[in-house]
């Protein structure tokens, strides 16, 4: 176990180095930079600024400076916000986090319930409907779903605000503020839930179906246990095991922001900031954030593997 753990951690190093190289050189491939996009600057001022931001250095030197700073927890300096990238991330990441967390909780809750019921009533009308809806959810482009929701619920029915995080020009406090925030959150969260609940339901349903056919479930039934006990105490727990892995995989999504959904709903989260930084060529912000997500992905993969070994001793870690 211990040697496995060490091996896995060592294994992260080349992956992260590879990711940092790929990220840095991809961004340095994009022609034009922050200074070039501003048409109001004179040639001398441009040269001055480029020197200040280190844009006149060769790519290799810039890469090593960047990686060196990463090790000190310095993700760079956002050109657009004129603040350190870590500070910008800190400012915007939480609004993304709450939307992601709310949709994650609702998605898992719904997916577990629907998946289990669907599996226990295999081939019933409920099951077929669920299967169809799952396919529908996986075939809808996220931005289109967002647009349809805004058109229907915000424009036509006027039930919810069309976008943003709080009503513009309002200065609510306390409970009022919270209510306003919640109203703005409903549609984006709904879209995110609709998009992800399908795949997850399918996953739980498949797992549950697999477990229900196993011998120990038959034994439990043969012992004369109530069906509810068989399903929830014996089958359900085993079907949940692989979900632990999946849960760890969801970790990066909590912080990465939903680029498309945030863009459509004008939600001031990290995804929307990412798109904005993209238009003005704010590379330090883009690179810092992409690297941050890459690190999170790698760590969550590791956590997934380790947790699975802890939860299910039948899986031997080599």
């Amino acid at each position: 176990m211990n040697s496995y753990f060490i091996k896995r951690i060592l294994y992260l190093i080349p992956t992260l180095i590879g990711a940092s190289i790929l990220i840095f050189f991809l961004y340095s491939l994009i022609p034009g930079d922050y200074v070039d996009t501003d048409p109001n600057l004179t040639a001398e001022r441009k040269a001055e600024l480029k020197e200040l931001y280190g844009l006149d250095q060769p790519v290799i030197t810039r890469y090593f400076t960047w990686v060196g700073n990463l090790f000190q927890g310095d993700l760079g300096y956002s050109l657009q916000f004129q603040r350190p990238v870590t500070e910008v991330l800190g400012n915007y990441i939480w609004s993304s986090f709450f939307v992601a967390l709310a949709s994650l909780i609702i998605t898992w809750f719904l997916a577990i319930i629907i998946g289990v019921i669907s599996a226990t009533r295999h081939y019933s009308l409920f099951d077929s409907t669920v299967t169809f809806l799952v396919f529908a959810a996986m075939a809808t482009p996220s931005f289109f779903l967002g647009l349809i929701m805004i058109k229907f619920f915000a424009v036509d029915l006027g039930w919810f605000p069309a976008g943003g995080m709080i009503t513009t020009g309002s200065n609510f406090t306390g409970l009022e503020y919270f209510k306003d925030l919640a109203e703005h959150m409903i549609l984006p969260v709904l879209v995110l839930v609709m998009l992800s609940v399908g795949g997850l339901t399918r996953y739980f349903r498949t797992n549950m179906l697999e477990v229900v056919r196993q011998d120990f479930v038959r034994t439990a039934r043969a012992k004369g246990l109530k069906e509810r006990v068989v399903i929830f105490k014996h089958a359900f727990r085993n079907a949940m095991l692989p979900a632990i892995t999946l849960f760890a995989f969801e970790l990066p999504a909590l912080f990465s922001g939903a680029i498309i959904t945030e863009q459509i709903f004008n939600w001031p989260g990290i995804g929307a900031i990412y798109m904005q930084a993209f238009t003005v060529r704010d590379y330090p912000l883009l690179m810092g954030f992409t690297m941050f997500i890459a690190v999170l992905t790698v760590i969550s993969n590791l956590i997934a593997d380790l947790l699975y070994g802890v939860a299910d001793p039948r899986v031997r870690l080599k």
Binding site: T15, A19, L26, I30, P31, P252, S256, I260, I293, T297
Partner: peptide, 25 residues
Amino acid sequence: MRTADVLMTIPGLPLLFIMAAVMSE
């Protein structure tokens, strides 16, 4: 496989956006 690992570490959408920006030029 290490190349594949690296590609899978970076979220797909930003990766597509970057490539699109490079290729737009």
